[in-house]
Design a protein around this nucleic acid. Structure first.
Lengths: 331, 331
DNA sequence: TTGATTTATGAAAACGTTTTCACCCTATAA
DNA sequence: TTATAGGGTGAAAACGTTTTCATAAATCAA
């Protein structure tokens, strides 16, 4: 509760001097400085952020916004951790929003973040053009996109070789002798879903197989949708012998359905999922997966963000991280 | 960038009137009001939070702090979701801190939250008395504890019947004929670890078994520690035939070690974990677990928080939620 | 010495709100 | 009619900082 003026009074100086001690210590002689410093400590004085911010808009908020599509998805948890660790090292806090692929919710968070005047935003955008996100750009608030970029706006982005990753997984599957391989995708409107589908199709084509639309399913990137889509696939008269699943949660859902049908993996049906998980090895059977470096993605994004904060006019970069196909026993 | 005064000028009224339109609309006649409202919309005016807050300290921040020990732990993810959903419904944002059971990190977040003047704090405290958290209490910032309370301070708390939950699991294990049942615990200084151990011991005692210190292990509540502790247990000359694991991450670690040793579950060794997970059913074998209602915990905690925000002097309550033993195939 | 420069400091304005107070009206009561 | 009570409004102060500007004191050059 102690204010600047209290410190000033206690130290027998003016408010200006106290402010100088805090913000430009080298402009005030040591003797005065020490007196002020003592008073500050004595009164346990902390500058009021709101007053500071009101007066000079360019003081850092030490706050970065992070907007993720689904915190239940272990992949994003890794991203969050990467962001958080990096921020922590630099004394920044994270204002997190989990928008559940929900336009409204994302919107609300963006508004809050705007009015909180965050120093920068890291976001996995649900659409490639987004009005509110563009507002950030206009307001000169740095944005970093992960997982997918933004149309019409030039932003830094860190993403992963989705097509390549999918290709490798599916290619492996056909090399194992599978002919009917299904793709259980996520939300069809998001780029990652499409890119992975592209890799999937290309791998089939390159191996002389044709792509069968019946075997390509889209959902909403959740556990439940993984379950349901897999169910549909298993009902097919000519059912697939292998599944390539579009993300973590879908994979888990698929697994559940497969187990419900008492099918043997990979004997009856093989499965490779996009996204590895720390416990993939403890699944039944240990899951083969395309691993994305979630933690690194978060870390790189934050790195980029801080670079942009300190130099707003550098030209936007695109960081593409590699995926890794991890073969265990499911496919 | 439009400020109150711009709106005032455009609407041909004074700043006071604009402010009144915003804060106490019923005190200004409709004709004036609509003129002002139009100007607001026209200029896309948003009140500056910092000025608002500076001027009147009692305006809500619409910000709640959430401090969780480990976001990698799916249980806490559920809690986070519960908190977030409830906050979202009420137009509040969440300032999240993930302190990784790390004193320093937690401290830093608490400081940030203090200077951000959050409306309230939800925290799973690492120790039962915590100086900085007490400061919140002094500053009249509402606190809700989850998972464990605070010594010396009377706060609202929502927790789970840890002892009872553990008891049921272990009791079930001995009813299955197990004699040597180990407890793979988390950080020994946190109450949940101890309470679960108490339930474990009691169940043994009540069934006429004695508790063998050799079979009680403590670690740091992580995946890695689950792996290592289980390894130690398996090295014992008289190895346990069943494991009761103290949390999600530990369970997963234990599973990994058991699989590494090519042991059959539950044939060679049974396992029941504290905390259920959405994909427990897809584990090898489907995991039996003591399920905690993480989402509900988050929701209830937030409910309590809002109640306390609106009525700071109500007497603190303790909400105790039940656990549920879910039997699948691992024990 | 004197005038010019530098150093140390304080007074006051500004940031964008909310809120108190006082004012001027018009409508009502006497 | 005159006094009274509100209703509607604006001026100005306040919140706690930062920053500009001015001034006084101290240092320097001649």
């Amino acid at each position: 509760m102690a204010a600047l003026r209290d410190v000033a009074k206690k130290a027998g100086v003016s408010a200006s001097t106290v402010s100088r001690v805090i913000n430009r210590p080298d402009t005030v002689p040591t003797t005065t400085k020490s007196r002020v410093l003592k008073a500050i400590k004595n009164l346990n004085y902390h500058p009021n952020k709101f007053a500071q911010r009101l007066r000079s808009h360019n003081v850092d908020r030490k706050l970065v916004g992070l907007l993720v599509p689904d915190i239940q998805n272990p992949f994003y948890v890794d991203v969050v951790k990467g962001v958080e660790d990096y921020c922590f090292e630099r004394g920044y806090a994270v204002l997190m929003g989990n928008f559940m692929q929900d336009e409204k919710k994302g919107q609300m968070y963006l508004e809050v973040m705007q009015s909180e005047e965050i120093d920068g935003l890291i976001v996995a955008p649900i659409q490639e053009h987004h009005k509110t996100i563009s507002q950030f750009k206009e307001k000169k608030i740095p944005i970093i996109c992960i997982d997918r970029g933004l149309k019409n706006i030039d932003v830094d982005v860190v993403l992963v070789e989705n097509e390549e990753g999918a290709y490798q997984a599916v290619d492996h599957l056909v090399k194992q002798g599978h002919i009917r391989i299904a793709y259980v995708g996520g939300i069809p409107s998001i780029p990652t879903t499409l890119e992975r589908e592209k890799g999937y199709s290309q791998a089939l084509l390159d191996n002389g197989l044709n792509v069968d639309d019946e075997l390509i399913k889209y959902g909403d990137s959740t556990h439940l949708s993984g379950k349901e889509l897999t169910e549909e696939l298993l009902q097919l008269k000519d059912r697939p012998t292998a599944l390539f699943t579009g993300n973590n949660l879908i994979t888990l859902g698929a697994l559940e359905t497969i187990h419900k049908h008492k099918l043997h993996i990979p004997g009856d049906i093989a499965i490779i999922g996009f996204d590895d998980m720390p416990w993939s090895i403890s699944l039944n059977p240990p899951l083969s997966a395309v691993s994305q470096p979630g933690y690194d993605i978060g870390k790189r994004a934050t790195e980029l963000l801080f670079q942009r904060i300190s130099d707003p006019k550098r030209s936007p970069v695109k960081v593409v991280l590699k995926t890794k196909l991890i073969l265990r026993e499911s496919g």
